[in-house]
């Protein structure tokens, strides 16, 4: 490389380490890390703390790698959406090829090291999650069907199953229930976002429910999915993953969540515009607390089990 070519490559906004890190969607990663951590600790097989740390780290890196591949594929959409226009590729800080290379490299790295650190069931689940998010959701469903969020939500729901598999080497009813909880939570969470990020998805040509079926239908969908989610979330209290602490958390948060969904359902667009989508924004924030609190309660139940504190809801059934 000549000196001249070095200068020609210079840009005012040259990518820094933080820009590459931003490709891994660190905010989404917090959800992945936490749910994988809960899945791993809730499993009945104790794991060495360092292996547990590495397992969660590799799951997070795998999730981040799929985020980089998502940004590589969706750079055109991200550029026209206000919410995503500042991402490293549309902002011109990172070249698409760099994001692709980083995504593929980190995917292979994460799957391989998770397999070596724990077992190949967990590694296989992580590989499938990356494939599902990048190929099934990003490349196929997202631009094709308004059910994109519903089916694609599965990708974000796998981490607790991977964490469980890292500890046990298999899949169990409890890990599938944790998957279902995140899977059912995703649609109302994203549809609330779509309601107050008005115009973003329309401009990008993404067939979100708000675009294809209208905002009134989206409000109804949020309510229906919230009711289904509440039934599932409370039912988990009576399984091996739940218990009295989880039941209290689930009842309180689902009551609040249903109240929020009902409020969204009753509102017209005029109501929403009058207060700048306060109910929709509030529901979105509550949905974040909702998921963290449910998984936090599962973690507490697992901790109580380990400590030998026998609390059972068996007699209530």
């Amino acid at each position: 490389m000549t000196d001249a070519s070095l200068h020609s490559a210079s840009r005012d906004s040259e990518a820094q380490f933080g820009d590459y890190f931003a490709l891994l969607k660190p905010r989404v990663m917090t959800l992945v890390v936490f749910t994988a951590f809960v899945g791993l600790l809730a499993a009945p097989v104790p794991v060495h703390p360092f292996i547990a740390f590495c397992a969660v780290l590799f799951i997070a890196v795998g999730g981040g790698a799929s985020g980089a591949l998502n940004m590589w594929w969706d750079a055109d959409i991200d550029a026209v959406m206000k919410r995503t226009a500042g991402r490293p590729i549309p902002a011109g800080k990172v070249a698409p090829e760099e994001a692709l290379a980083l995504g593929i490299g980190l995917s292979g790295f994460a799957v391989l090291l998770l397999g070596l650190a724990t077992n190949w069931v967990a590694a296989g689940l992580l590989a499938f999650t990356i494939f599902f998010y990048v190929v099934i959701y990003t490349m196929w469903l997202k631009r094709w069907t308004p059910q994109n969020i519903v089916i694609g939500g599965a990708a974000g729901a796998f981490p607790p199953m991977i964490g469980w598999a890292a500890a046990t080497g298999g899949i169990a009813v409890e890990s599938v229930l944790m998957f279902c909880l995140t899977f059912m939570w995703t649609p109302p969470h994203f549809w609330a976002l779509a309601l107050f990020m008005r115009g973003d998805y329309d401009n990008a040509g993404v067939p979100m429910l708000t675009v294809t079926h209208g905002r009134k239908a989206t409000r109804a969908h949020i309510l229906v999915y919230t009711l289904l989610l509440a039934a599932l979330a409370v039912a988990i209290a009576f399984t091996g993953a739940g218990g009295p602490v989880y039941l209290v958390v689930a009842v309180v948060l689902n009551a609040l969540f249903i109240k929020g969904a009902l409020r969204i359902w009753r509102r017209t667009e005029e109501d929403a515009e009058a207060d700048n989508f306060a109910a929709e924004r509030g529901f979105f924030k509550l949905s974040l607390l909702y998921l963290f609190a449910h998984f936090g309660a599962i973690l507490v139940e697992a901790g109580l089990d380990r400590a030998g504190v026998a609390l059972s809801l068996g007699g209530l059934l």
Partner: peptide, 28 residues
């Protein structure tokens, strides 16, 4: 070279990631 100044943060980050990888593989 000015390039090294410009890429200092990036190079430092990559160095730390590689050091962490060594620690992780050794620990595992």
């Amino acid at each position: 070279h000015e390039l090294h100044q410009r890429r200092k943060g990036r190079n430092l980050g990559v160095g730390l990631v590689l050091a962490a990888l060594i620690v992780i593989v050794f620990g595992l």
